[in-house]
Design a binder for these strands. Structure first.
Lengths: 323, 323
DNA sequence: AAAAAATACTTAATCGTTAAAGTAACGTTC
DNA sequence: GAACGTTACTTTAACGATTAAGTATTTTTT
């Protein structure tokens, strides 16, 4: 790979001059400037980001730490984040913790070693300020807020409330709750949003905590088989799809016997039958906003943290129906 | 972040000594050695990979270039690749070209700038040796072979043949082919494997080329609506799922009226109804083998390229049925 | 016991870049 | 025309690591 030195030799100037031309700093004559640019093109020079990072402290890379790429919410997000970063010439270092705290910690350490300029992080464990300090760079959380950190996420509380309102509108009163992991803030808020809106209006006949996957646990399957609920609020689309399949497996029809609503509006929600009624999050927007905020923080670190909460909306498809 | 210098000062030795201890090179006394290790722990020193890269030429990072993370085949692969790399302390720089050649080229250029040690690449366009030269590092292709490159992929040809055999076994003779993009080697081989095995035994009544997505084009929808075929071989599971939905939308039942077989065995193939009969690729193995080969090539560049072709198998579920 | 070899370090050069400081040459200003 | 400012460069130090080469000190060999 050609270096500044090669370009300098080609033109017959010092490396400093070449650097000045490329960065628009210092003062360089027009003739030399053009010669340098021509040589850069001719040799196919591109800056060595590692060397640049050593001098400037900026590696032109960011970290993206996700809990599980096999959850279809995240590939979409990752795609958007990578796209926004790439457009600005920034590399994205991916860590998939697979919902494992140790893997996540190890991943963050790798990011610190690579000295990324910032991190977009959807945490599986608790986010502590020591963990932040260890990374030594700005962090923007996504999906899962934590005190004292910048965060971008959808309005989960409102989403939960909208789902409850939808149940009400359709005349349902017997509600089953497949709430997500209640140690994760975004799952807590979805649940609480629903429960608050349901208060005194809807009857929550059972509530089971399940992970964010299509595989329901035994308790959930038992609850579904009890046939007590006519409307099920699932904490995300994966759970909803798992529930629909489980219901069909025991001979119940969705939406005729039971209505099911999901959360996220992942691409697959239109590919399953019945198509899923769900609360739509602006996944691409979350990715874009997270990158924007992170780049801002990298340029100018900020004491005051912000929480960007994006609107959600109800998408009615075929998995819910009036009683 | 603490540096070698800090550790050296803490112990009262030179940076060289610290470096020798950490790399098990040179000769260092046991007492000093222990003191250094203690100081490393105390200060929480981790090597600055950027600086290391400048001296040694190895950045402890690899690139992963994929065509589309929203195709569920790739997140699984990415997860495995990242996992294998992380276990060895290697960072993975992700590029999602979104099936766009320009984005891919730009991504490769970013990887070159970041001086990754090697690249795992599922190419959207043609793989030329100039492109390889521009990256200046070993490359292992996945899924899409190209002359003169190391590659890891499943036995597509055999997979196609197995699918044809399955159709034959079930007594089908009128076949519809939803072949994937015929500018992509892996799609070509899937098709050819099927067609060769079908020769003189099966009647391919129509063949439509569609992209690797669930959205079928107009020609495909027309072909499906013609009801000429009783067995459809889709080039991947996404296409198969799209086909099943399209068939159901026009009132045909799968598998009673039409059988559909996919390819890949993505996790979603069990979540759609009917569950998908498909040709299973060992996705995780592909990821692991690709990483292994790449690490080998990084350690010792090799002139002779290899093609690792992994076995596929038929997974019979509910989307195919005897005529 | 003197020479040679091994041990345990330090010094200093280097990777590719940036940027502060230095240096000519030229143009202004009074 | 001397002093000053500006322009257009070059020289050099630094970032954090590795490693060849150098230097004492100790150990082994003969």
């Amino acid at each position: 790979m050609p270096t500044l030195k090669d370009v300098a030799k080609e033109v017959g100037v010092s490396v400093a001059t070449v650097s000045y031309v490329l960065n628009n700093t210092g003062s360089v004559g027009e003739t030399v400037s053009k010669q340098v640019l021509a040589a850069v093109k001719k040799l196919g020079y591109t800056p060595n980001r590692r060397a640049q990072a050593m001098r400037t402290g900026f590696s032109q890379s960011i970290g993206l730490v996700l809990p599980d790429l096999t959850n279809p919410f995240f590939p979409e997000l990752a795609q958007k984040v990578e796209d926004e970063a790439r457009k600005q010439g920034i590399a994205v270092v991916l860590i998939d913790s697979q919902n494992n705290i140790e893997a996540e910690t190890q991943g963050l350490s790798i990011l610190a070693q690579q000295s990324v300029d910032g991190i977009i992080w959807c945490p599986v464990g608790n986010v502590t300020h020591e963990k932040k300090a260890a990374t030594n760079c700005p962090i923007v959380l996504i999906d899962r807020p934590s005190q004292g950190f910048d965060v971008v996420h959808a309005n989960y509380r409102a989403g939960g409330a909208i789902a409850a309102e939808h149940a009400l509108q359709l005349g349902h009163t017997k509600i089953g709750l497949l709430s997500g992991p209640q140690n994760i803030e975004s799952a807590i808020q979805r649940r609480n949003g629903f429960v608050e809106q349901a208060k005194n209006k809807l009857d929550i006949v059972w509530e089971i905590e399940v992970p964010f996957t299509t595989e329901l646990n035994a308790a959930a399957l038992t609850a579904l088989a009890s046939k007590e609920a006519t409307f099920i609020f699932a904490a995300d689309d994966l759970i909803a799809i798992g529930a629909i399949n489980a219901l069909m497996d025991i001979g119940l029809n969705v939406p005729n016997d039971v209505s099911v609503i999901g959360f996220d509006n992942i691409p697959w929600s239109t590919m399953v039958r019945p198509k899923l009624t769900t609360i739509s999050q602006p996944i691409a927007d979350i990715g874009k906003v997270a990158v924007d905020i992170l780049f801002q923080r990298i340029k100018a670190p900020e004491k005051i943290t912000c929480a960007i909460i994006l609107d959600v909306s109800l998408v009615v498809r075929n998995s819910t129906k009036a009683l």
